[in-house]
Simulated assay, not measured.
Amino acid sequence: MARTTLSGFPEWTPAGRIVEQRVIDHVRRTFELHGFAGIETRAVEPLEELMRKGETSKEVYVLRRLQETDDSAESELGLHFDLTVPFARYVLDNAHHLAFPFKRYQIQKAWRGERPQAGRFREFLQADIDVVGQDTLPFVFEVEVAIVMAEALAGVPGVDVVIGVNNRKLSQGFYEAIGLDDVEGTLRIVDKLAKVGPGTVTEMLVTELGATGAQSEAALELAG
């Protein structure tokens, strides 16, 4: 068999796998000590659900069988690119079996078809915690999630933990005050800052939303 290397799909040596397993075990224990229950969802979801936000079409790996016909229901499946969509679907499907508020953790593989670069892979392990309520959710859970995340990361050697706190209402009020009425579009574009850089974000704000140079500069300054 010829040697092949696929960029973005890491494979660890036995020594590297031991390190990974120890990190996973530590994170899992931390989540469980704080009362979070572990779940695992299926690897595939309907493409319609994965692409609902419209910004992920290039990131989804589509699942197909070689002998599959175009009208098969399975032709509309894709590998999940994070754990948000699977978890939302899981809660809806299993609500009658769950006790709310439902505190869940999930440590599972995800796949994203983006360009591999430092710190970004096409296949990766994601660790996630959430608390879901039925009607209202007490604010204390927002604080608890941040504390648990900090504790889990602080126990990993060589990791310096800094948690940034953001409130969408602050961004929304700021964008509206400077005349950017499409708050959803602005948030979506500014969220790409770390990935594409300030120049591209400015260009997108101007070409897609009609922002002025001053508005774009102010939006970038708020994002830091």
Rank of each mutant, 00 (worst) to 15 (best):
E76W: 03
V44Q: 06
H34Y: 15
L137V: 00
T212F: 02
M149N: 02
K192M: 09
K195F: 06
T202I: 09
L92F: 11
E217H: 02
I189K: 04
T30G: 02
G78W: 05
G173K: 09
G179R: 03
E49H: 14
R89K: 14
S7F: 00
G8A: 07
R17Q: 15
D130S: 09
N166C: 05
D160E: 15
G54T: 07
V206C: 06
F81D: 04
A219N: 11
G8M: 07
V60H: 01
G119V: 06
V159N: 06
Q67C: 03
H34W: 14
L205Q: 06
T41P: 04
F102C: 07
V183N: 11
F121P: 10
F124M: 07
T186Y: 13
L79Q: 02
G210L: 00
R112L: 08
F81C: 08
L63P: 02
P46S: 11
V162D: 06
G16A: 00
K192Y: 03
E48I: 02
V132E: 06
K103G: 08
D82Y: 01
L205R: 02
L180E: 09
A146G: 14
Q172D: 10
L66H: 12
R104C: 04
A177P: 09
L137E: 01
Y105A: 07
E45Y: 12
E203R: 14
V91S: 03
I18K: 13
R22D: 10
D82A: 09
L180C: 10
F124R: 07
T41H: 03
L66G: 08
E74P: 06
D130A: 09
H34A: 13
F36C: 08
K103M: 11
G179D: 01
P198M: 07
R122Y: 01
A211V: 05
D130K: 14
T41N: 04
P198A: 06
R104A: 07
T212E: 08
Q21P: 04
R22F: 03
M149C: 12
V148C: 02
F9R: 03
L153T: 12
R168Y: 00
F87D: 04
E59A: 10
T84E: 00
T200G: 05
L63I: 11
A150K: 15
N167T: 04
A150C: 13
G164L: 01
Y90R: 10
K169Q: 09
Y105H: 15
H96I: 00
L220M: 11
I189S: 01
M51P: 00
L33C: 15
R64S: 14
V91F: 09
Q108H: 00
V85I: 15
Y61H: 09
F102R: 11
A99Q: 14
R112V: 01
A127K: 01
V183L: 11
T212K: 01
R17W: 10
L47R: 06
D181T: 15
G210D: 04
Q134G: 08
V60K: 07
V23A: 06
A177K: 15
Q117I: 05
G213T: 06
A152H: 14
A110M: 07
F139W: 10
R64I: 07
M149V: 10
A223F: 02
M149D: 08
I24V: 15
I18R: 14
F141D: 11
D191H: 05
P46I: 12
I189V: 10
